[in-house]
Design a protein around this nucleic acid. Structure first.
Lengths: 112, 112
DNA sequence: CGCTACATGTAGGTTAGCTACCTATCGCCG
DNA sequence: CGGCGATAGGTAGCTAACCTACATGTAGCG
């Protein structure tokens, strides 16, 4: 996967991963791998800062816990985050529709 | 459309626009508008540098001409560019499949 | 003459994801 | 006991690439 094809879509991915249940950062990375069929393997240096950004923006909220002696920061979607996710899903559909229209069926009937 | 959702996909768009016929920069911008259903309206400051980048990379070749007293730099796909376009189309399909898998049908059966 | 469409271009800023690195615990293996 | 991999979280700094804003010039119309 090209390095920064994700640009501008990562937020949607993270919010979607939290849709339907709270998860901690490490588990989010694993969930992304699983749900993408292995195509997405995001480094922690990408995911953790992004989560903090989303928290500052009010889209997710976090809480510390300790499981098996290890500290976890567990994230959940806020109401604002859910609304944002809905918008992101719509934006994604529009985006793919636009790109598909261009990449589409190859050659184009020239509008000469 | 979010500002830089295009990141990493612009090259594919430009190559695809040139697939099936040579065009000059200005016409490429219009073709993108047309084929995306108006969703893509790229500024010249985005497209022209990108075309030069693609030319340096050997994916397109250009030629000056004068039409109606105006100078045009007309671009065409090279053989390398065609191969690259094919790869880009595949990459795009894989990319959307991966993202769709995550945004997918909302909540996910937890792999507990 | 001024305005719009056509046509190409550069300079500079932003920013988000990536690389590389660091810390710490737990459980396993030798 | 020592080392290593998996689990878990984090920061600093780089870079690519897209955007904004601006500059240049021609043609055609009123």
């Amino acid at each position: 996967m090209k390095a920064d094809a994700l640009r501008g879509h990562l937020d949607a991915l993270l919010l979607a991963t939290l849709d339907g249940g709270k998860l901690h950062g490490y588990a989010i990375i694993e969930a992304l791998q699983l749900r993408s069929g292995g195509a997405l393997d995001l480094p922690t240096g990408t995911v953790y800062p992004a989560l903090r950004r989303l928290e500052r923006a009010g889209y997710v909220a976090s809480e510390w816990s300790t499981v098996g002696g290890r500290k976890r920061r567990t994230y959940r979607l806020t109401a604002t985050g859910e609304r944002s996710l809905a918008k992101e899903r719509t934006a994604w559909r529009e985006f793919t529709t636009a790109i598909d229209g261009v990449l589409g069926g190859g050659p184009w009937p020239s509008p000469t």
